[in-house]
Design a protein around this nucleic acid. Structure first.
Lengths: 158, 158
DNA sequence: AGAAATTCTGACGTTGACGTAAGCTGGCGC
DNA sequence: GCGCCAGCTTACGTCAACGTCAGAATTTCT
């Protein structure tokens, strides 16, 4: 097995295995690093990239945003950057830092998440509407197949 | 006004107006024609493209498939080609042609539509799940803002 | 008719998200 | 030591979906 346990006990994969598990190419992982979207958890002595579970999860998240929402990697960087700031915030809580600053970061995260939520909601509803249209079309086809004569309806929607 | 009524009484727009109403560029319309995705309803004597309501509706449909479902124009051609065959079928019904052939076309249309329906359904559910995740994140943020201390939970999903 | 606006047909340019190939390097198995 | 595999960097190639520009032709306005 090519896996290897880090000194902290965390699973560390080199790029080949990491790419295979995430379902992307090695080139994709290097490219994500190139554009500052995802850097490996660390490097081996020889300079090989090493990825942990968090990085794999992030790849999955990136692909979701890309394929499901049609976001560009550029925008996605903003989204995951926000998530990173939240992780930072979690640490800040534990280290009990400036309260005012914490509120600000949290508020900003709340707002950007809500904005994303609205986008996703709108998208979900449009696609659901499209799906319902398809369902109607299907039942219409079924009716026709049962022997009915189709109406030459043309709503001519513009 | 740049509009003009066709001899059949149908609205005919030249490429500029058509593109504006459909919310795309002129180049896009010409490109769609280039790849056999959408041809104008007709041409003027001098060779200018003329688009009717049906073509505008088709552009809208194409953009839906492209943006909402992330389909490539290549695949979309298949989908709209099927819709065209259905229109043809409607005419065939009126001209009362071969019954066996009609059933075959209708059955094929039903199947491809059902296949598309499944794709769309799957997509809708994945996006809805993502939206729900966001909703949870938001309420978590709200709780934190209300004074709670965040838990350093890391599911480490792979 | 003549000017102005729109459209036509090529043809080349662009952008995002990688693919691919070349040449070099580090660790291992025998 | 030697071969081999996986990985590294660098750099050019690709593909879809248009954008853009030039120069000629069409349509509209006055």
């Amino acid at each position: 097995m090519a896996e290897r346990a880090h000194h902290g006990g965390e699973l560390r994969l080199r790029i080949g295995e990491a790419a295979a598990r995430a379902g992307v190419s090695e080139r994709t992982l290097r490219y994500y690093e190139e554009i500052g979207l995802l850097s490996p958890a660390g490097h081996s002595v020889g300079g090989c990239r090493e990825y942990g579970p968090a990085e794999l999860a992030r790849v999955t998240r990136i692909r979701e945003l890309q394929e499901l929402l049609g976001l560009e990697l550029d925008e996605i960087r903003g989204v995951v950057a926000r998530e990173d700031r939240i992780d930072t915030l979690r640490d800040a809580y534990r280290r009990s830092e400036g309260d005012e600053e914490r509120r600000a970061i949290l508020l900003e995260a709340l707002q950007t998440t809500e904005a994303l939520y609205l986008r996703v909601s709108a998208r979900v509803e449009r696609i659901a509407a499209f799906r319902d249209e398809l369902a109607e079309t299907i039942s219409r086809y079924r009716t026709w197949l049962a022997g009915e004569i189709p109406q030459p309806e043309r709503p001519a929607a513009v």
